[in-house]
Design a protein around this nucleic acid. Structure first.
Lengths: 345, 345
DNA sequence: GCCAATTGCACAAACGTTTGTGCGAGCTTA
DNA sequence: TAAGCTCGCACAAACGTTTGTGCAATTGGC
């Protein structure tokens, strides 16, 4: 009932209160008393005082001394995007299960911010990193992995880089989705990209090109929307595409938000998904099946992506060596629903 | 090109390389050289060596010395829930704009986990806390605010507690939503709760009771689904409600996931939203207007909630005193769409 | 009742910073 | 040329822990 100095008690104060040295207090408090021949009475005295003073050891000091921050850094382009949120959550849960905490950072789809954040996380001495990179640049990531701390990339990976990566099988996913459109007789198909230039996007795009070619068709560039970095929304690009190519009969949206943008854009120009426009999208949503037209989607196993990413980092932390298996690619699942209909034209 | 000892360079090494003392290196590196009469040549020498060795100051050590961790703790019940993800993002962005980093934790809707996480964040000496509490218990939060660090609650607030809170106007929101149902002639209305016992939930519930009473109706307990803590999904409870009260003609879902659960449950028992079931939900979603039946919702201004929460903490950090205004309540917006139809019975 | 072994603890260094103070060398001024 | 200034830097303490080592005091054997 005496001094509530508003500052958290330190070990020094606990030691003083228990009339022992700081070292003894430390060992007693941390259960290392037995091994260090601290008498039972002393141990309990220390623990009582610690309790009474509400002593909470400073992780800052501990980390400094132990050279282990107990922190995992997570960088995503947009936490509010359900895709990244799901991954962040999974990593968080896994990390916490291993006694680690998560430092979350949001790069806002900007490489320069990503680099800045990477530096800040480094300076906080995170022990591992899970990064959904913006995907434009990679060298800063390689450097981190080599000299600083284990890192694993999720989703926006790079090819030919010595970095651990976890992602979905974009090629197969795109192939499945696109085949659905072809099967239903569509040949003028608009693609609504994610961030252009990033691997998942390019893989999906080139898969589309391949499929078109094999079907004896060509994918004109005017059918590819969102080929600039600035608009993340995709709404404008979808509208532009609808205006410049009114002959389009189907959309392949590379992301869930894009699907939504396509719907909005189509509605505004008087086109209606399903009557005269088909739609298939990457990434599922709990709402997809309850849409005006239940949305055909290709869903990724977000939980597995996140969990695997966490596991790769955690294992590397434990064993201290780079994982043998560098790339993890997970299958996607096609959810055929009613947003794809036969081409009427 | 010499020693890549795989460990990050320390100031000691930089100082040695620049042939100055650590203190001088510190001041030179931090731009405090001028003020401390360090010669220009020394300054540049230090900075060069720092650059060469890729020196990155340890925030751990800095924090220990400065007694400022530069960390804001954020605890939410479920990061993957878009509602909380949006808030987490907003806080993250605000914090980063002020040079602070965010420690994110997920309480998994469990009070005991929340308490544990709170302790861990404290031990990391976070300077402020933004918490979307599970909402069952509050005393651990009060204690934190009083003796440890500024804290602001979001969404799941408590009444009569000396804690800063940010939330939406649940009463008015519920009133608007529910009035819609009454206006359309519904009288047997099922309520799909969030976590029972939490303030937003109780406010919405009692508002519903009031409205019913004023309309000369009664809200039987059998019309209140999800009155147990274990199921967060609400799907089972919705099905039970539909089974026990087949006369129900409308649902008021207290959350976006619940709306989705209602849809799924209704479909499985052969009821169809709009034909013989109306639905209004708290929380909007970009998909709401593209649903099979465009969903009538009451939307909260998530960005504003998150931003305000961050601001309250940040201001308190800056000024050092408790904010004058303790409670921030923001208006919600009714989005009338087609999921509410006249009662046919 | 003496030596060795054991018990119970304190001392001090270290982790990587920041910051108050001290101190010598060079310059001015008289 | 002696006294005083200024300049440029080094020294050392401190932040709160952990941990290796040293040193009394007690115990035990004979």
């Amino acid at each position: 009932m005496a001094n509530d100095t508003a500052h958290t008690a330190t070990l020094v104060e606990v030691a003083a209160a228990a009339r022992v040295s700081v070292s003894t207090a430390s060992r007693a408090f941390n259960g290392r008393g037995e091994a260090n021949r601290i008498s039972a009475s002393t141990i309990s005295r220390v623990q009582q005082e610690a309790e009474r003073l509400r002593f909470q050891p400073s992780q800052l000091a501990r980390s400094l001394q132990s050279q282990r921050s107990g922190l995992i850094g997570v960088i995503v382009p947009d936490v509010s995007n359900p895709f990244f949120a799901a991954i962040a959550r999974e990593v968080t849960v896994q990390a916490e299960a291993h006694g680690l905490s998560v430092l979350l950072a949001d790069s806002r789809e900007t490489t320069s911010v990503e680099i800045k954040l990477l530096g800040e996380l480094q300076s906080r001495r995170v022990e591992g990193l899970v990064v959904c990179p913006v995907g434009e640049e990679s060298q800063h990531l390689v450097h981190v992995d080599q000299v600083v701390t284990p890192i694993v990339l999720v989703d926006r990976c790079f090819t030919g880089l010595p970095l651990a990566s976890v992602h979905s099988d974009n090629v197969h996913g795109a192939k499945q989705a696109f085949k659905q459109l072809l099967t239903h007789g569509h040949s003028v198909i608009g693609c609504l990209q994610r961030l252009s230039g990033t691997l998942p996007n390019e893989q999906r795009l080139s898969t589309v090109r391949n499929e078109m070619q094999q079907a004896g068709l060509v994918l004109d560039d005017s059918l590819i929307a969102g080929d600039n970095f600035t608009e993340s929304s995709g709404y404008e690009s979808a509208k532009l595409l609808l205006a410049s190519r009114p002959d389009v009969t189907a959309f392949f949206a590379f992301s869930s938000p894009n699907a939504f943008n396509a719907l909005r854009a189509a509605e505004e120009v008087g086109r209606s998904v399903t009557d005269d426009l088909s739609l298939v999208a990457f990434d599922d949503s709990p709402f997809a099946e309850f849409m005006q037209v239940p949305l055909s989607t290709v869903s990724q196993d977000l939980q597995r992506l996140g969990r695997t990413a966490a596991e790769v980092v955690l294992k590397q932390l434990k064993t201290g060596k780079k994982p043998r298996k560098r790339t993890h690619s997970f299958p996607v699942k096609l959810n055929p629903r009613q947003s794809i209909q036969d081409n009427q034209t």
